Simulated scan of single mutants.
Amino acid sequence: MPKLYPTLSIRQPWAGLLALGIKPIENRSWCANPKYYKEEFLFHAGKLVDRDAMCGGNSIIDAAECLVSYVGGDVIEFKNRLIGNEHVFNCGGIVGRATLAGCSYIRSARWGRPNQNHWVFTCASPVPFQPLKGRLGIFMTNFEVQKNE
C-alpha cells in the first residue's frame, strides 16, 4: 500500500550518490525541522544536472566516480554498489530512500560543504525509478516501497 514520504529534490550526480549510500550528507542552507529526524525520506533526482560537479566527465556516472575519488572515497565500493543500480543516475524522478538521522554544521565532514547545514542520512538504498515532477523544499510523495528492496 502506498505511503506518504517526505521527499527532497536533488540534482545529479548528488541524488545518485545519496541513493547508493556513498554520500551520507546532503548540504542545504537550512536545517530540517526536527520532526523529520528518524523519518524515511525519498530522493528525487531533478531534471537538471549540477554542471559544476561534472568533473569534466562525459556522463553523470563518470562524474560521480570522479567525485568519490576526489573526496577520498572508495571507488571500488562505488562501482560494486552501482552494479544493477545504474538507474539511480536517471533524472526527473525518485531514485532512492534513506533515513534522516539529523542535521549538523560540522565543518570536517567528508561530503560536507563549508557554511552549509549537513543533513545526515543513514540506511540508504536505491528504489526502482519512478518519474515525478520535483518541488522546492521538503514535499510529500505517495510511494509504494517494494517488499524485495
Results as ranks from 00 to 15, higher is better:
4 L>A: 08
115 N>F: 07
40 E>G: 11
123 C>D: 12
80 N>P: 02
106 I>N: 11
91 C>E: 15
140 M>E: 13
37 Y>A: 02
111 W>F: 13
143 F>V: 04
134 G>L: 12
13 P>F: 01
130 Q>G: 10
29 S>N: 07
33 N>R: 11
44 H>Q: 11
91 C>L: 12
108 S>M: 13
30 W>N: 00
26 E>H: 01
15 A>M: 01
60 I>P: 12
59 S>A: 07
135 R>M: 13
43 F>L: 03
39 E>V: 01
131 P>H: 02
33 N>F: 03
127 V>S: 12
71 V>P: 08
104 S>F: 07
73 G>A: 04
58 N>Q: 13
89 F>K: 11
83 I>M: 10
10 I>N: 04
120 V>A: 03
149 E>Q: 13
144 E>L: 08
130 Q>F: 10
55 C>G: 12
17 L>K: 01
15 A>I: 04
29 S>H: 09
52 D>S: 13
127 V>I: 08
136 L>M: 14
115 N>L: 01
94 I>P: 05
13 P>T: 08
123 C>N: 15
34 P>S: 07
111 W>K: 08
5 Y>W: 12
82 L>H: 06
123 C>E: 04
73 G>S: 03
29 S>A: 04
138 I>R: 01
145 V>W: 12
66 C>M: 14
93 G>H: 02
35 K>E: 14
3 K>D: 02
132 L>V: 04
3 K>A: 11
80 N>E: 15
135 R>H: 14
56 G>N: 10
125 S>P: 03
96 G>P: 07
108 S>Q: 11
38 K>P: 01
18 L>Q: 07
9 S>Q: 10
106 I>Y: 10
124 A>N: 14
143 F>M: 07
138 I>A: 01
43 F>M: 05
118 H>K: 15
2 P>M: 12
146 Q>F: 04
31 C>I: 03
63 A>P: 02
127 V>R: 07
133 K>Y: 11
98 A>F: 03
28 R>V: 00
22 I>R: 01
93 G>V: 09
39 E>M: 05
47 K>H: 10
132 L>R: 05
38 K>M: 13
8 L>Y: 03
55 C>R: 12
26 E>K: 00
42 L>K: 11
87 H>W: 13
136 L>W: 04
122 T>V: 14
8 L>T: 04
82 L>Y: 05
119 W>A: 03
94 I>F: 05
114 P>N: 08
94 I>N: 09
35 K>I: 15
92 G>W: 01
103 C>Y: 02
27 N>G: 02
51 R>P: 06
105 Y>R: 15
56 G>S: 11
82 L>A: 04
74 D>S: 12
29 S>K: 00
92 G>V: 08
54 M>A: 09
116 Q>C: 01
36 Y>G: 05
130 Q>Y: 13
109 A>F: 00
139 F>V: 11
126 P>G: 10
22 I>G: 00
70 Y>H: 13
30 W>M: 00
70 Y>G: 02
89 F>S: 10
68 V>K: 09
81 R>E: 11
73 G>F: 05
85 N>C: 13
80 N>I: 06
68 V>H: 06
93 G>E: 08
37 Y>H: 08
60 I>N: 10
